[in-house]
Amino acid sequence: MTITIPDDPLVARFNARLAELNSSARVALTRIAGHTGMLELRDDAENFLEFIPAEASPEMAAIAFPLYARGLNRGVRAGEDAAWAKLRYLIGAAAAPTHC
């Protein structure tokens, strides 16, 4: 198996095809050691989401992007819910009168 080493023209073609597919996902070259042959999958704000193989098709990335984003958003919301619950608990505990 030959590993594709991504370069700027590959990224440009990949992103052009993602745009044709009306996907807000984009890919970028990675500079992280140990990820040879990988692209960085990014959202429309250029935030890193995940590594994908350079051999992956833009169609696969266009399908994977909303699934990954949905899971990420659910995880973030779950974390926010837990943080708010903890804050409400702490505020409630701090506001509770102490009985001596």
Score class of each variant (00 low, 15 high):
Pro66Ala: 07
Pro58Cys: 02
Leu49Ala: 11
Arg17Ala: 08
Asn15Asp: 10
Leu18Met: 03
Glu55Met: 11
Arg42His: 00
Tyr68Asp: 09
Arg42Thr: 13
Ile52Phe: 07
Ala54Tyr: 05
Ala33Glu: 15
Met38Thr: 02
Ala12Gly: 00
Arg42Asp: 06
Asp44Cys: 12
Phe48Leu: 09
Ala61His: 04
Ala54Arg: 02
Thr36Asp: 15
Pro58Phe: 06
Ala56Phe: 07
Glu59Ala: 13
Pro53Gln: 09
Ala64Thr: 07
Ala33Leu: 09
Phe14Cys: 01
Ala45Glu: 15
Thr30Met: 06
Ala16Cys: 10
Ala45Cys: 11
Ala69Leu: 15
Arg42Gly: 02
Asp43Gly: 00
Ala45Asn: 14
Ile63Ser: 11
Thr30Tyr: 00
Val27Asp: 14
Asn15Gln: 00
Leu29Phe: 01
Glu20Asn: 11
Ala16Tyr: 11
Met38Leu: 07
Asp43His: 00
Arg31Tyr: 09
Phe65Trp: 04
Leu21Thr: 02
Pro58Glu: 04
Ala62Leu: 02
Gly34Ile: 07
Phe65Asn: 00
Ala28Trp: 04
Thr30His: 05
Glu50Ile: 13
Glu20Ser: 12
Ala12His: 10
Leu21Phe: 05
Ala25Arg: 07
Ser57Phe: 06
Leu67Met: 09
Ala62Thr: 09
Thr36Phe: 13
Glu20Arg: 06
Ala56Asp: 10
Thr30Pro: 06
Leu39Gln: 00
Gly34Leu: 00
Tyr68Ser: 11
Leu49Thr: 12
Tyr68Lys: 14
Arg31Leu: 08
Ala54Phe: 00
Arg17Asn: 09
Arg42Ala: 08
Arg26Tyr: 08
Asp44Gln: 13
Gly37Glu: 09
Met60Lys: 12
Asn22Ala: 13
Ile52Ala: 05
Met60Tyr: 15
Phe51Trp: 07
Asn15Phe: 01
Ala33Met: 05
Ser23Gly: 08
Phe65Asp: 02
Ser24Tyr: 09
Pro66Val: 06
Ala16Arg: 12
Phe51Gln: 06
Ala28Asn: 07
Leu21Val: 03
Leu21Met: 03
Leu29Cys: 11
Met38Asp: 10
Ile63Ala: 14
Pro53Asn: 08
Met38Gly: 02
Val27His: 10
Asn15Pro: 05
Asp43Asn: 05
Arg31Val: 09
Glu55Lys: 05
Leu41Phe: 05
Ala19Leu: 10
Ser24Cys: 13
Phe14Val: 04
Asp44Trp: 12
Ala33Asn: 11
Asn15Val: 02
Asn22Ile: 08
Thr36Ala: 15
Phe65Thr: 04
Arg70Ile: 11
Glu55Gly: 12
Ala64Met: 11
Ile52Met: 08
Pro66Leu: 00
Arg31Thr: 15
Arg17Cys: 12
Arg70Trp: 11
Arg31Trp: 06
Arg31Gln: 11
Pro53Val: 10
Leu29Tyr: 07
Phe65Gly: 06
Ala19His: 06
